[in-house]
Amino acid sequence: MKEFKLNVNGSSHSVRVHEDTPLLWVLRDHLHLTGTKFGCGIAQCGACSVHQDGVAMRSCVLPISAVGDSEITTIEGLSPKNDHPLQEAWIKHDVPQCGYCQSGQIMTAASFLDENPNPSDDEISQAMSGNLCRCSAYLRIKEAVKTASKS
Protein backbone atom coordinates (compact mmCIF):
# COMPACT_ATOMS: atom_id res chain seq x y z
CA MET A 1 0.00 0.00 0.00
CA LYS A 2 1.07 3.53 -0.64
CA GLU A 3 0.17 7.02 0.46
CA PHE A 4 -1.74 9.06 -2.13
CA LYS A 5 -2.84 12.67 -2.07
CA LEU A 6 -5.91 13.68 -4.02
CA ASN A 7 -8.15 16.70 -4.54
CA VAL A 8 -11.83 16.04 -4.17
CA ASN A 9 -14.53 18.71 -4.23
CA GLY A 10 -11.98 21.42 -3.52
CA SER A 11 -10.34 19.76 -0.52
CA SER A 12 -7.17 17.78 -0.42
CA HIS A 13 -7.10 14.34 1.13
CA SER A 14 -4.51 11.75 1.90
CA VAL A 15 -5.17 8.02 1.82
CA ARG A 16 -3.16 4.85 2.21
CA VAL A 17 -4.35 2.24 -0.27
CA HIS A 18 -3.17 -0.25 -2.89
CA GLU A 19 -1.99 1.68 -5.91
CA ASP A 20 -4.40 -0.14 -8.22
CA THR A 21 -7.37 0.83 -6.04
CA PRO A 22 -9.97 2.46 -8.27
CA LEU A 23 -10.84 6.03 -7.33
CA LEU A 24 -14.40 4.76 -6.68
CA TRP A 25 -13.32 2.73 -3.64
CA VAL A 26 -11.10 5.49 -2.33
CA LEU A 27 -14.08 7.83 -2.43
CA ARG A 28 -16.48 5.34 -0.90
CA ASP A 29 -14.46 3.44 1.68
CA HIS A 30 -11.80 5.97 2.65
CA LEU A 31 -13.33 9.43 2.14
CA HIS A 32 -16.89 8.22 2.92
CA LEU A 33 -18.22 10.04 -0.12
CA THR A 34 -20.80 7.38 -0.94
CA GLY A 35 -22.83 9.37 -3.46
CA THR A 36 -20.63 7.83 -6.15
CA LYS A 37 -22.00 4.33 -6.66
CA PHE A 38 -20.60 0.92 -7.43
CA GLY A 39 -22.45 -0.86 -10.22
CA CYS A 40 -20.23 -2.99 -12.41
CA GLY A 41 -16.54 -2.23 -11.87
CA ILE A 42 -15.81 -2.37 -15.62
CA ALA A 43 -17.05 1.01 -16.92
CA GLN A 44 -20.25 -0.42 -18.39
CA CYS A 45 -22.99 1.11 -16.24
CA GLY A 46 -21.94 4.65 -15.35
CA ALA A 47 -23.12 4.54 -11.71
CA CYS A 48 -19.62 5.57 -10.60
CA SER A 49 -19.33 8.65 -12.84
CA VAL A 50 -17.36 11.59 -11.40
CA HIS A 51 -15.63 14.55 -13.01
CA GLN A 52 -11.90 14.63 -13.47
CA ASP A 53 -10.95 18.21 -14.32
CA GLY A 54 -14.54 18.79 -15.36
CA VAL A 55 -14.89 15.76 -17.63
CA ALA A 56 -17.03 12.74 -16.75
CA MET A 57 -14.95 9.68 -15.93
CA ARG A 58 -15.76 6.18 -14.72
CA SER A 59 -14.18 6.12 -11.28
CA CYS A 60 -14.44 2.31 -11.07
CA VAL A 61 -11.64 1.90 -13.64
CA LEU A 62 -9.55 4.93 -12.74
CA PRO A 63 -6.74 3.75 -10.45
CA ILE A 64 -5.77 6.12 -7.67
CA SER A 65 -2.23 6.11 -9.04
CA ALA A 66 -3.54 7.84 -12.20
CA VAL A 67 -5.48 10.56 -10.39
CA GLY A 68 -2.44 12.69 -9.58
CA ASP A 69 -3.23 16.31 -8.86
CA SER A 70 -6.31 16.44 -11.07
CA GLU A 71 -9.44 17.99 -9.61
CA ILE A 72 -12.06 15.37 -8.81
CA THR A 73 -15.68 16.41 -8.41
CA THR A 74 -18.28 14.02 -7.06
CA ILE A 75 -22.04 14.40 -6.79
CA GLU A 76 -21.52 15.82 -3.28
CA GLY A 77 -19.45 18.66 -4.78
CA LEU A 78 -21.38 19.29 -8.00
CA SER A 79 -23.02 22.44 -6.62
CA PRO A 80 -22.74 24.34 -3.36
CA LYS A 81 -26.36 23.93 -2.35
CA ASN A 82 -27.37 20.92 -4.42
CA ASP A 83 -28.93 23.38 -6.80
CA HIS A 84 -27.22 22.53 -10.06
CA PRO A 85 -29.77 22.92 -12.88
CA LEU A 86 -29.67 19.15 -13.34
CA GLN A 87 -30.38 18.50 -9.66
CA GLU A 88 -33.28 20.93 -9.84
CA ALA A 89 -34.56 19.33 -13.03
CA TRP A 90 -34.30 15.90 -11.42
CA ILE A 91 -36.49 17.16 -8.59
CA LYS A 92 -38.93 18.84 -10.96
CA HIS A 93 -39.44 15.63 -12.95
CA ASP A 94 -39.32 13.38 -9.86
CA VAL A 95 -36.93 11.18 -11.82
CA PRO A 96 -35.73 8.37 -9.54
CA GLN A 97 -37.32 5.06 -8.78
CA CYS A 98 -34.77 3.20 -6.67
CA GLY A 99 -32.40 6.14 -7.15
CA TYR A 100 -29.15 4.20 -7.05
CA CYS A 101 -27.91 5.11 -10.54
CA GLN A 102 -29.01 8.73 -10.39
CA SER A 103 -25.86 10.44 -9.13
CA GLY A 104 -23.95 8.80 -11.99
CA GLN A 105 -26.63 9.90 -14.43
CA ILE A 106 -26.42 13.49 -13.15
CA MET A 107 -22.62 13.59 -13.29
CA THR A 108 -22.61 12.24 -16.86
CA ALA A 109 -25.28 14.71 -17.90
CA ALA A 110 -23.46 17.66 -16.27
CA SER A 111 -20.31 16.99 -18.21
CA PHE A 112 -22.31 16.44 -21.42
CA LEU A 113 -24.23 19.71 -21.07
CA ASP A 114 -20.98 21.58 -20.49
CA GLU A 115 -19.84 20.38 -23.90
CA ASN A 116 -23.20 20.58 -25.62
CA PRO A 117 -25.48 23.12 -23.90
CA ASN A 118 -28.32 22.80 -26.45
CA PRO A 119 -28.58 19.13 -27.32
CA SER A 120 -31.27 17.52 -29.46
CA ASP A 121 -33.30 14.61 -28.06
CA ASP A 122 -31.17 12.18 -30.04
CA GLU A 123 -27.96 13.69 -28.77
CA ILE A 124 -29.22 13.33 -25.18
CA SER A 125 -30.13 9.69 -25.79
CA GLN A 126 -26.75 8.92 -27.30
CA ALA A 127 -24.80 10.76 -24.60
CA MET A 128 -26.73 9.10 -21.78
CA SER A 129 -26.68 5.60 -23.24
CA GLY A 130 -23.57 4.68 -21.31
CA ASN A 131 -25.51 4.94 -18.07
CA LEU A 132 -27.78 2.07 -17.08
CA CYS A 133 -30.97 2.54 -15.10
CA ARG A 134 -32.25 -0.88 -14.13
CA CYS A 135 -35.60 0.62 -13.04
CA SER A 136 -35.84 2.09 -16.55
CA ALA A 137 -36.58 5.65 -15.49
CA TYR A 138 -34.98 6.60 -18.83
CA LEU A 139 -37.86 8.73 -20.10
CA ARG A 140 -37.66 11.00 -17.06
CA ILE A 141 -33.89 11.15 -17.11
CA LYS A 142 -34.13 12.33 -20.70
CA GLU A 143 -36.80 14.93 -19.86
CA ALA A 144 -34.77 16.22 -16.92
CA VAL A 145 -31.63 16.62 -19.02
CA LYS A 146 -33.72 18.50 -21.57
CA THR A 147 -35.20 20.76 -18.91
CA ALA A 148 -31.76 21.49 -17.45
CA SER A 149 -30.39 22.32 -20.89
CA LYS A 150 -33.03 25.01 -21.23
CA SER A 151 -32.47 26.61 -17.84
Binding site: T36, I75, E76, N82, I91, P96
Partner: peptide
Protein backbone atom coordinates in the same frame (compact mmCIF):
# COMPACT_ATOMS: atom_id res chain seq x y z
CA UNK B 1 -35.97 10.79 -0.63
CA UNK B 2 -35.61 12.86 -3.80
CA UNK B 3 -33.39 15.62 -2.38
CA UNK B 4 -31.10 13.07 -0.76
CA UNK B 5 -30.84 11.02 -3.94
CA UNK B 6 -29.84 13.92 -6.17
CA UNK B 7 -27.28 15.19 -3.68
CA UNK B 8 -25.66 11.79 -3.11
CA UNK B 9 -26.48 11.56 0.58
CA UNK B 10 -25.88 8.33 2.40
CA UNK B 11 -29.08 6.38 1.92
CA UNK B 12 -28.54 2.90 0.54
CA UNK B 13 -27.36 -0.25 2.27
CA UNK B 14 -24.26 -0.12 0.11
Amino acid sequence: DLAKIVSGENLFGM
